[in-house]
Structures are given as structure tokens and as C-alpha cells.
């Protein structure tokens, strides 16, 4: 194939060489589309992509897990108290661990998208942008639940506390995690646009997440102290309302958060 050279300024460049064979797609290869990419399919595509990438690299999960185990161990040595006092701080220790580990995961999850411009790739897809929020939120929740599933048995072992496996307690952890991840995913999409994202996310997140963390600690602490259902109803209601409000808010504002 002929290759010619062209002078531009003082540069000689090879141009026009290896002319393309004008590749054309055969009709069978032309893309066939759904009537409209559905919200659910786009959300699930993001979740599957995040899980596949994470199970291959294990960057995010390993960081969250190691951090959580260190926190549990540090508390174990710091709180060399009698067994009753230890049991009374269970909810606080666990939620402190989950909150900090969750922040690590949230930061990393959005940073992966931003650092290689993949967030733009997601935003270019012709789907409702709140599908991106839900996709990221579901995968963040999955990571947090995996960490919790490993941390809880470890905690039970170190603190001799098996009551944390009661279904109601696990239900509170699920509700609290949903609220924390909903607001955290929204705020991480905001903070990832800044240069100080690692510092900014906790500063933004913890004040906004105080209601969900307080309600979670109160509800889970109440369950461990054999409180009646009526006594934990208020924090439980607060948790449910918080979850619903922040999921709705994220659904409405995510498009504006990610657009310049």
C-alpha cells in the first residue's frame, strides 16, 4: 500500500498510508435496539459490571474488610471492660465500623468511575440518569452487606455476643445500610467532581447521615437490650422514612448533581 509524506511546518508526517478498506458492517451486524433501553436493564448492567470488576480486582472489598477488622480489634483492646459494658456498646461499635468502612467503599466506588472518565461513559448512555444512581447504590450496598456479613461473625467471636444474629437486628442493619448508602452514593457523586474528594465525602456525609446512624444505633441497641417493639418503633420509623426520603431525593436530583 502506498504511503505518502506531508510537510507540516518543519514536521514530516506519514499520512494516507494503509488506507482503510472502508469496512462496512454486514446487515446482520447492525445493532438492533430495544424500543428504549429500560431503566431496570441499565441499572442491572451497572450492578453486574461493578460486581464483575470488583470480584476480579478485590481492591474495594479488601480495603473495607481490613479497615473494619482493624476497627473491631482496636475497640476490642480499647474497651477492656466487663462483659455487661461490652454488650452495651455493641451497637455503637458496629455502626462506627460500618460507617467508616462504608465511606471508604463509597469514595473508591465513584473514584473508579471518575479516574478513567468512565462516569462520562455512563452519562453518555441514553438512559434516565437516575438508573446510574440506582446501579451504583445497589452495588455499593452489596459491598457493604458483604463486609457486614464477614464483620458480624468476627465481632461475635471477639466480643462473645451472639444476639447480633437475631433476624430483627439484621433487619435494622439492612435498613440502616440502605439509608447510609443512598445518601452516601448521592454525595460521593458530588464530591468525586472535586480535587479534595477523599476529605470532602466524610465532611459532607456524616452530618447528613447522623439521623440514620442515630436511629440505627438506637434501634439495634434496643433490640440487644430486650426493649419492647413499641420502644424501638420510633427509631425504626425514622429509619424507614429516611430511606424513602433519600432514595426519592437522589432519584430527583442525581441528573443535576452529575451534570456540569
Amino acid at each position: 500500500m502506498a504511503t505518502k509524506s506531508k510537510m507540516i511546518g518543519n514536521r514530516k508526517l506519514k499520512v494516507g498510508g494503509r488506507k482503510s478498506s472502508a469496512f462496512r458492517f454486514p446487515p446482520s451486524a447492525a445493532p438492533r435496539f430495544l424500543a428504549k433501553p429500560t431503566f431496570f436493564k441499565a441499572t442491572m448492567a451497572i450492578v453486574q459490571k461493578d460486581l464483575a470488576a470488583e470480584f476480579r480486582s478485590r481492591e474495594l472489598l479488601s480495603a473495607m474488610l481490613v479497615f473494619s477488622m482493624l476497627v473491631i480489634l482496636i475497640f476490642n483492646f480499647a474497651l477492656e471492660l466487663d462483659i455487661k459494658v461490652r454488650q452495651s456498646v455493641t451497637a455503637g461499635v458496629l455502626w462506627t465500623t460500618f460507617a467508616f468502612a462504608g465511606t471508604l467503599g463509597l469514595n473508591r466506588s465513584m473514584a473508579v468511575e471518575k479516574d478513567r472518565g468512565c462516569l462520562d461513559g455512563l452519562l453518555l448512555a441514553p438512559v434516565d440518569r437516575s438508573a446510574i444512581f440506582f446501579g451504583k447504590a445497589i452495588s455499593n450496598l452489596a459491598f457493604m452487606l458483604i463486609v457486614e456479613a464477614i464483620v458480624l461473625p468476627l465481632y461475635a467471636l471477639l466480643y462473645n455476643e451472639v444476639r447480633i444474629f437475631q433476624p430483627a437486628f439484621l433487619g435494622v442493619i439492612l435498613l440502616g445500610s440502605i439509608g447510609y448508602i443512598a445518601v452516601g452514593t448521592l454525595l460521593s457523586a458530588m464530591s468525586v467532581q472535586t480535587r479534595t474528594r477523599d476529605v470532602l465525602l466524610p465532611i459532607l456525609l456524616f452530618p447528613v447521615a447522623i439521623p440514620v446512624l442515630l436511629a440505627s444505633v438506637k434501634a439495634s441497641g434496643g433490640l440487644l437490650n430486650n426493649a419492647t417493639f413499641a420502644e424501638i418503633l420510633t427509631p425504626l420509623n425514622l429509619l424507614i422514612v429516611y430511606d424513602v426520603i433519600f432514595i426519592a431525593v437522589a432519584f430527583m436530583v442525581f441528573d443535576f448533581v452529575v451534570e456540569e
Binding site: 458492517f25 454486514p26 446482520s28 451486524a29 447492525a30 445493532p31 438492533r32 435496539f33 430495544l34 428504549k36 433501553p37 429500560t38 436493564k41 441499565a42 448492567a45 451497572i46 453486574q48 459490571k49 461513559g121 455512563l122 448512555a125 441514553p126 438512559v127
Partner: peptide, 18 residues
């Protein structure tokens, strides 16, 4: 495959090959 799903392409395997 991921981007094909985001764009709602149904015949993504043949399209990806092309």
C-alpha cells in the same frame, strides 16, 4: 457488552464481534 446493554442493543454478541 456493558456499553451495548446500556444502549439497549439486543444482538450484542454479533455486534461486539463486528
Amino acid at each position: 457488552q456493558f456499553y451495548a446493554r446500556m444502549y439497549g442493543i439486543t444482538n450484542h454478541q454479533s455486534r461486539i464481534t463486528q
